[in-house]
Simulated scan of single mutants.
Amino acid sequence: MTENSAALPLAGKVAIVTGAGRGLGRAYALRLASLGADVVASDINLDSARDWNEELTADSVQAEVETLGRRSIAVQADMSNPEDVARLFDDTKAAFGRLDILVNNAGGAIARDSGPLATQTSQSDYDLLMDANLRSCLLACQAAARLMNGGGSIINVTSQTAVSTLPGGPLAIYGAAKAGVTVLTRCLAAELGPQGIRVNAIAPGIIMTSRVAAQAAERGLGTNAQAEGLPLRRLGQVEDCAGVIEFLARDLSQYVTGQVICADGGAVLNAS
């Protein structure tokens, strides 16, 4: 191993990160770039960091990646829309000619007109949550499988809510969609393994992104009680999850597939 390959283990690799405009997705994009990967930053709103007063070190996530010495393009895309997904992967192929890493980060608990409980969920919010979290993941995985020639790493993002039930049962349909991502991850790992494509997932707990911090009081997230209730006695930071993404993207995990790694401070140990 050369000194450069040790410092930049992803040099020559190309990664797509969806939902890269802010928060966890931005952290994933910058971590992969710091390891040498060229990065395609995709988001339905590429300026979303500004919506939550998240400070960037350059004008955009694309510019931040380029500041690290990597090549980058930005593609605005709704990952639940097949035409947008096709355009994202076509643009990636045109710009870089290959794809080695996909981080399926787009999605979220984004119900608009109903409550968080299963019995409160409207049909429109059910469709929205399933489209944003499960449909988007499937469409991107299908496109990645076609573009990854000679192997690669697909990293899906599920959630603590897909692994354990929150007290009282909130985020029910979001959790169900993310549980679907978990099953999809394992099925794809079995299907794509013979092609040299590894498929794994990360399940974050409460991570103090700019959005969570801004909505903490309103949504009851990020409280001292929640932190003290965790075995590690603290809430997560974006870099805690970026480290898991690094592991799954690198050859450190070359014999790992079909797995879901919980990055939740031990929250699943207290599962009801």
Rank of each mutant, 00 (worst) to 15 (best):
T2K: 13
N4K: 08
V14K: 07
L30C: 02
L30G: 02
A33E: 11
I44R: 04
D51P: 00
L56M: 11
T57D: 08
Q62L: 00
A63L: 09
G69V: 08
R70L: 09
S72A: 14
M79Q: 15
V85C: 01
V85P: 03
F89N: 02
K93E: 13
A94K: 15
F96G: 06
I101D: 05
L102I: 07
L102M: 14
N104H: 08
G108A: 04
A109I: 00
D113W: 06
D113Y: 14
S114K: 04
Y126T: 04
D127S: 10
D127E: 14
L128C: 04
D131E: 11
D131F: 10
A132E: 09
A132T: 05
L139T: 07
Q142M: 14
Q142I: 15
R146G: 04
M148K: 06
S159Y: 07
P170D: 12
I173V: 15
Y174E: 00
K178E: 14
G180I: 05
G180R: 02
V183K: 13
L188S: 13
A190W: 05
P204D: 11
I206G: 01
S210N: 09
R211K: 09
V212C: 12
A213N: 13
E218K: 06
R219Y: 09
G222F: 01
P231L: 06
G236H: 01
D240Y: 12
G243F: 02
V244N: 03
R250W: 00
C262S: 15
D264H: 04
G265A: 04
A267M: 12
V268E: 11
A271N: 06
S272E: 15
S272L: 13
S272M: 15
